[in-house]
Amino acid sequence: MLNTIWFALWGLLWAVYFMLDGFDFGVGVLHPFIAKEDLERRMVINTIGPVWDGNEVWLITAGGATFAAFPTTYAYMFSYLYTPLFIILASLILRGVSFEFRGKIESEGWKKFWDFIIFLFSLIPAVLFGVAFGNIFMGLPFDTNGYHGTLFTLLNPYGLLTGVFFLLLFLEHGALWLSFKASNSVAERAQASAKKIWPLLLIVAVLFLAYTKFATKLYNNYISHPVWFIVPAIAVVSLLLIRAFMNSSYAKAFLSSCVTIVTVVFTGVIGLYPNLIPSSINPAYNLTIFNSSSSQYTLKVMLIVAVIFVPIVIAYQLWAHMLFKGTIKKEDLEDKEVETY
């Protein structure tokens, strides 16, 4: 029972991480295209300024929870996916410092350099997280002797499709965020992008769902327990609702996009159960929530911690999001008394 609860929490941490940092990635990739001059770019960066750092902590928590609850999976996952993880790590480091460094020297070239860094190192992790999860859904080639793949094994058609799917999810998410957080022409360009990206996202989502049937065993759980089809059904409905809401409220469209990302992640996670990483060589080697977990004692201690602290975290993060919910205007950025990036 504890193992299953931790599996659900593990899925939830990843889902919330993608829901939150997803729009940071989208904003980072889109910003050179949506914002034309320096003040506009600062506006875009400052929409995520107060929250990106708190968003990224969900990744650290997801990693920490994997280590604490499923240490064997943590050990194998991180050493098998060595190169992509290093690239993700370097990207997150560069993206993180670029927000802080960009405005610290008044020079055109300096700012352009960091704009490019923000773009590139938002793009790379957005795709690579998709590639990594696509490969986990399929299973990795490992047995008792270890891992038999390389970085290029991961770049298979299904992995790449999942990468593109994640990227489009995040681009749509980021465009919708900017549609109501930025103002004037920046918001208008973001709205136009959101409308352009959506049909692409829909096509790739359909392809992903279809290809999943052939490339993975994710649907087996759904066939044996059809009630779970509710989760992918919500994903599809909320994806369609994004477009419907765009005519009335971009904030609602954004919330719908949040639901889409969370349910997409859970669609995969439910299909994986009880595996954390299946072996594509032989299911006997699968890393499951039973054979790779911590002791019941540790799972219990960790659950108590999570039950107490996660609601507190959610409460103050919501408070902070509400505090900064307003639109960012150009005047705000020129106000010398307010700190901005």
Partner: peptide, 30 residues
Amino acid sequence: GDIFGAPLAIEATMAFFLESTFLGVWIFGW
């Protein structure tokens, strides 16, 4: 992992969220 992972996860839950969220409030909340 059974031992070492727990304090790491607790560190993230109890501390990292606190510092990063309120640092955002501090920088941008004047």
